[in-house]
Design a binder for these strands. Sequence first.
RNA 1: GGACCCGUAGCUCAACUGGAUAGAGCACUCGCCUUCUAAGCGAGAUGUUGCAGGUUCAAGUCCUGCCGGGUCCA
Length: 591
Amino acid sequence: MNVFSLMKDRVVEVIQSAVEDGALPSGLKTDAVTAEAPRDAAHGDVSTNAALVLAKQAGMKPRGIAEILASRLLNVDEVDAAEVAGPGFINLRLGASVWHGVVKEVLKTGIAFGDNAAGQQEPINVEYVSANPTGPLHVGHARGAVFGDVLAALLSKSGYAVTKEYYINDAGSQVDSLARALHLRYLVALGKKSDNDFAAAAEAGDVEYAGGYLKDAAVKLVDADGDKWADAHEDEWMEPVRTFAIKAMMQMIREDLAALGIGQDLETSERSLVESGRIETAISDLERQGLVYTGVLEPPKGKKPDDWEARPQLLFKSTEFGDDIDRPFKKSDGTWTYFASDVAYHRDKFDRGFSQMIDVWGADHGGYVKRMQAAVKALSNGEGALDIKLCQLVKIFDKGEPVRMSKRSGTFVTLRDLIDAVGKDVVRFIMLTRRNDAPLDFDYAKATEKSRENPVFYVQYAHARINSVFRHAAEAFKDLDLTDPGLTHADLSLCSDDAELAIMRTVSAWPRIVESAAQAHEPHRLAFYLNDLAAELHALWNRGNENAELRFLLPDEPGRSRARLALVRSVALVIASGLHVFGVQPVEEMR
RNA sequence: GGACCCGUAGCUCAACUGGAUAGAGCACUCGCCUUCUAAGCGAGAUGUUGCAGGUUCAAGUCCUGCCGGGUCCA
């Protein structure tokens, strides 16, 4: 149950009844009415802006409407008090039984608490990682990978039918370069060339992918095909070696992702789109709509690139959909641009039934957003929605010192390095402690530090503490039923301390956090919520230090102990629910 | 030159897509272990939300123009 959506429904019902009684004029639109948790606890449990929203429509003063609604809201079961405040807010205070009901619901539903049906099982496609199949994943990919994976889990929890997808860019010139690099490694593996030859070629810039990771693939190629391609011409070996290389790289990438706990539902190959003629289909479809023409683009403003020359090319009228200039579908050599195949790919997704799509990209692709969204509007007749989430850079630090990374010297930090250094769960959690559109500093030392400053530790510690209480409770109260179903019979009215009621309210907010984070496509909100919930738990725990009456376990008071166990157990379950969305294992004990 | 993202306490960041007196952590000062893990907690101070306008009951949030940082530009 989401207390806030429940109360919003109640407010709307009250407005309707007031309209029926003639207390308010008819024809009021209640779309903008909200029921939210006020920032300031002094403003009650739930606050509604109803009177402010209705004032203009009704031609009445906000506070006047608020008075009418407030007196009627007092008759609602859940409401203990309703008062008009400020410009016309109505602050509602709910009865304790509402919060008790939520705690019991958490005990019954477990980590499924917070699940909601907002998505109505609508299909939604989340495409993420989609790194070129030319090498291992690095830290830059890690952020998008975790972000996409957790966003997908969050959308599932919110009732969407999610498909997690990887787009393999296996058709561009970069995979030809990959094949050439592998072929040279292959010749080395066969003993036809030396490591020095390879190094010299790399030095001369003849090999684009000089990282050592192709050595294994070269050995496997020898195992598979022997010296078959040693003396062959490139025209002969290019296709088979390229296919082999892409397969090997994708295998490596899948293993990297698996180490991060990520397994996607579907991989779509760019090459297969090209070969099946779907680019032509998509483009000619746009042509029929009059959105494709041959024209000449203006030169880029300001500094002119040296090699710029005006020439006619095949263009998409993306300006009709809010883009700044029209975008080319074909390169000067007559082949399709990346944009053209991306258009075909998104058309393919739409045809597969996804009118809702999310792409997770690195921020360096920001310039690509408008044209892609323009294309999706065009190819779906306005029915498709594409949200593009840009993940900003991750900078790696160690004890505050930046870790130098350079692609050229091959010293960039791989995803594996990161996982080996701090563990999968820490990587996943830290990646979500910042909004996707803000840069993220990842400090090895801080990520594994056991302190308040490390959110992973802090949240896990709260969970472990609760488990510790239960270990002791099992000793102290041998005849109490401490299972979740057993705890639902606890008398929660015995939890009457303000701090206890406050943490019940925070627990009750979880469904709202899930729903709003899913709607906004912002999984980081869960991390901040979990941190807040953990802080409340730690605070509550420590109050037992100062006042023994507030300890969770009171040997002489099994009833009250059971109520407090029910309460903290609900906290543990909500933490576990959040960590489950994050793909992080809650720990039972700190070591 | 243009486009996109960002600009909030000394530092690192939140702020429920427009809500009430903008919140946390760090750092600083002081206090809390005979106790369910002190790996923690409490108390204190900190603001012209980059600047200037605009939209409305209400703007950190939306619009326009500047300033500064980042990313990108057949």
